[in-house]
Amino acid sequence: MRTLLNLIWVVLSGFWLFLAYVAAGILLCIPIITIPWALASFRIGVYALWPFGRTIVSKPTAGMGSFLGNVIWVVFAGVWLAIAHVVTGIALCVTIIGIPFGIANFKMIPISLAPLGKEIVDIGATDAPALIG
């Protein structure tokens, strides 16, 4: 079932969200100091491409550095990626079939705003509740 959901997701919004995260990552690679944020963007882009069956958990070792990094992320890329999730989610909620995928888009907004200090894991690898899937 997860494979079917992921295939429908890729067609409806996953591919375009993946491209948005890759574009943000490439732009963040230009100034060398923002490469850690670019890597986070690439990591989330792969998650946005194939989200069902995986979840997001907080890293227990994340501290003040992750918080400060997330503040910088919001300024440079987070707001724009969150807007992309909102617009895509609203567009998907127009049809009855798209409502679950729109809700999945809305659930991805928190990681698009604060990716540092988070980890993407398979649902079977953790006891955490599933964010998507």
Results as ranks from 00 to 15, higher is better:
10 V>Q: 05
42 F>Q: 14
82 A>H: 07
42 F>W: 15
29 C>K: 09
76 F>V: 06
99 I>P: 11
4 L>F: 08
73 W>K: 03
18 F>T: 01
25 G>K: 00
41 S>Q: 07
74 V>M: 12
108 M>I: 02
39 L>M: 13
5 L>R: 08
75 V>W: 06
35 I>H: 09
68 L>W: 09
123 I>G: 09
58 S>K: 14
89 G>C: 01
121 V>L: 12
103 I>P: 10
35 I>E: 09
71 V>Q: 06
100 P>W: 10
56 I>C: 13
125 A>M: 13
101 F>R: 10
12 L>P: 00
90 I>H: 04
102 G>N: 06
129 P>D: 04
122 D>Q: 12
61 T>E: 15
29 C>D: 10
118 K>V: 03
38 A>T: 05
58 S>R: 13
63 G>F: 08
43 R>N: 15
118 K>Q: 13
63 G>I: 12
24 A>V: 02
65 G>L: 09
36 P>A: 11
83 I>M: 09
49 L>T: 07
31 P>G: 07
13 S>D: 02
54 R>L: 13
103 I>G: 10
80 W>T: 11
107 K>M: 14
35 I>S: 10
101 F>V: 11
93 C>K: 02
30 I>V: 10
90 I>K: 02
5 L>P: 00
59 K>F: 13
23 A>G: 06
18 F>L: 02
60 P>Q: 12
57 V>D: 04
113 L>P: 12
79 V>Q: 04
102 G>C: 11
96 I>P: 05
